[in-house]
Amino acid sequence: MKSIPNIWYKVLTVLIVCYVLAYGLLINLPSDVGNLDETIRNLFYHVPMWFGMMLILLAAWINSIMYLVRPSVKRNIYASELTNTGILMGLCGLFTGMFWAYNTWGKAWTNDPKLNGVAAGMAMYAGYWLLQKSVSDPERAARLSAVYNVFVFPLFIALIYVMPKLSQFSIHPGSGESVNFKAYNKTNNMELVFYPAVIGWTLLFVWISEIRSRFQLIKYKKNNEENTVKHIIS
């Protein structure tokens, strides 16, 4: 038992996600969901990817700020690994969204403020990833990517959340004048699955980023040791 740190949230993750997987498919649906029909169940799988992505990128943003306030290897690794899993979650949301859109709207990509905002936002985060890979001095790379991240996260939220809300027309729920999932929720118990879904999926990806961060820390320490050994020999 000792060999798995923070086991309490990992157990919680497994329990919640199992509950979401089972109940998400079995729960009775409201009858007024229009042409969504059974696909409204995607609310428990597609939507939490985006919510979780925003939460994880927020955590990465906070870590970047903490790195700039007081530089440390740990903060840099946390920020970059959280961003990596955030991008992964975003891609999960993007591809599931395209599949759902193809089956509901007839097109995988509609010309919608929400979708275009996400495309631009993901490109910005691809820039973050490239920035880290392209600077050879690790400390410089850490500092530059932290500064970049501090700017990018608010822009990203503006693009995927604020702009669609302000836009005149959007086919995507939860933005502009379009329908809102809250409209259905009142008559049924979909909230009982939706909120745990957000928590559970987010924790699962937090777990993945924890493993990746610890791996990166081990790698860093090993490199450091080798360098000092070389230094002593030479």
Binding site: S3, I4, P5, K10, V14, V17, C18, L21, A22, L25, L26, W207, I208, I211, R214, F215, I218
Partner: peptide
């Protein structure tokens, strides 16, 4: 549902083993 849960639990088992290796 059963099959989806089994697949998820096996993925979790994989994560758990990875976690222990890192530890």
């Amino acid at each position: 549902v059963g099959i989806i849960v089994i697949i998820f639990l096996l993925i979790v088992l994989y994560l758990v083993r990875l976690d222990r290796k890192i530890s």
